[in-house]
Amino acid sequence: MKVIFLKDVKGKGKKGEIKNVADGYARNFLFKQGLAIEATPANLKELE
């Protein structure tokens, strides 16, 4: 799953980066902790 990092995550990505991560990792950790959001077309447009 592609995500947009909202904060730096050690060993995974830095704020503003778009990366592929495991679905479970994204849903169970990154999204719940507010560290990333899903890289949907709408979210990508907001990032620009």
Rank of each mutant, 00 (worst) to 15 (best):
V21P: 00
P41K: 10
I4E: 02
L6E: 01
A26M: 08
K7G: 05
K2R: 14
N28W: 10
L47K: 07
F5R: 01
E46R: 14
K10L: 13
G13V: 05
E17L: 03
M1I: 15
D23R: 13
K2N: 11
N20Y: 15
A22N: 14
G11R: 05
Q33F: 15
I37D: 02
Q33P: 01
K12P: 01
D23K: 13
L35A: 04
K14P: 01
K7Q: 13
K2H: 09
E48A: 14
E46P: 06
N20T: 15
G16R: 02
A26R: 02
K14F: 11
V3N: 00
L30Y: 04
K2P: 08
K45A: 13
A26Q: 06
K45R: 14
K10R: 14
D8K: 03
N28P: 00
R27A: 08
K12R: 13
V9G: 01
N43W: 06
K32P: 15
D23A: 14
T40K: 06
L6F: 03
N28L: 09
K32D: 12
E46F: 14
K12W: 15
L30D: 02
R27P: 05
V3K: 00
K10T: 11
K19A: 11
F31P: 04
K14Q: 10
A39W: 13
R27I: 15
G16W: 09
I4D: 00
A36Y: 01
D23P: 15
N28T: 08
G16Q: 02
Q33W: 15
G34P: 00
Q33S: 09
N20Q: 13
A36I: 05
K15H: 06
G16S: 03
K10M: 11
M1G: 03
K10N: 10
K7R: 12
V21H: 01
A39T: 02
L6K: 02
E38R: 08
Y25A: 06
M1Q: 06
N43P: 04
P41W: 09
K10Y: 13
L47D: 05
E48W: 10
L35I: 07
I4M: 07
G24F: 10
A36G: 04
L35Y: 09
F31N: 03
I4G: 00
G34Y: 07
E17V: 03
A39R: 01
L35G: 02
D23H: 13
K12M: 15
F31Q: 03
Q33H: 15
K15I: 08
F5P: 00
D8A: 06
V9E: 01
L44I: 13
T40M: 05
E38D: 04
K12I: 15
G16D: 05
I18V: 14
E38P: 14
E48H: 13
V21F: 04
M1F: 07
L47R: 09
G34L: 07
K7D: 08
E48T: 14
E38V: 07
A42G: 10
F29Y: 15
A26I: 10
F31S: 03
V9H: 03
M1S: 05
I37P: 00
K7E: 10
P41N: 11
E38N: 04
K32S: 11
F5T: 00
I18Y: 03
D8W: 04
L44P: 03
L47P: 06
G34E: 07
N43Y: 08
K45V: 10
K19P: 01
T40S: 09
V9R: 01
Y25D: 06
K14I: 09
V21R: 00
K14R: 13
G24S: 14
N43D: 07
K12A: 15
Y25K: 06
A36R: 00
V3F: 00
L44N: 05
P41E: 14
K2F: 14
Q33K: 13
K10I: 13
K45I: 12
N28A: 09
F5H: 01
L44M: 11
G24T: 13
E48G: 13
I37N: 02
D23F: 13
F31E: 07
L30H: 01
A36W: 01
F5I: 01
G11D: 08
E17R: 02
D23I: 15
L35K: 03
N20K: 10
L30T: 00
K10P: 15
Q33E: 13
A39M: 07
A22L: 11
V3I: 09
F5L: 08
G11V: 01
K7L: 09
G24H: 13
K2I: 13
R27L: 14
V3W: 00
K14L: 13
N43I: 12
A26Y: 13
A42L: 08
E46D: 11
V3Q: 00
N20V: 15
A26P: 01
A42R: 11
K19I: 10
K12Q: 14
L35D: 03
K12H: 15
E38G: 03
A42Y: 06
I4H: 01
A26V: 09
V9F: 04
L47V: 10
N28K: 10
E48P: 09
M1L: 14
N20R: 14
G11N: 09
T40H: 05
A36E: 00
A22I: 10
A42Q: 14
R27Y: 13
I18S: 03
G24W: 15
A39L: 08
Y25E: 08
G11Y: 07
N20E: 15
Y25H: 07
K14N: 08
G24M: 11
K32E: 14
K19R: 12
F31W: 02
N20L: 15
N43G: 06
E46A: 14
A26T: 09
A36D: 00
I18M: 07
G24L: 10
K7M: 11
E17N: 04
L6V: 08
Q33T: 10
K45L: 12
K19N: 04
Q33L: 15
I4K: 04
L47E: 06
F31Y: 05
R27F: 11
D23V: 14
G11P: 03
I18Q: 05
N20P: 07
K10S: 10
A22R: 12
P41M: 10
L44K: 06
K45H: 11
G13T: 02
K7N: 06
V21L: 05
R27T: 11
L30W: 03
F31H: 02
R27G: 04
D23N: 10
Q33V: 08
K19M: 10
L6H: 01
L44R: 07
I4W: 02
A42E: 14
E17S: 05
A22D: 15
E46V: 12
K2T: 14
G34A: 07
V21Q: 02
T40G: 04
D8S: 07
V21I: 09
K32V: 15
L44Y: 06
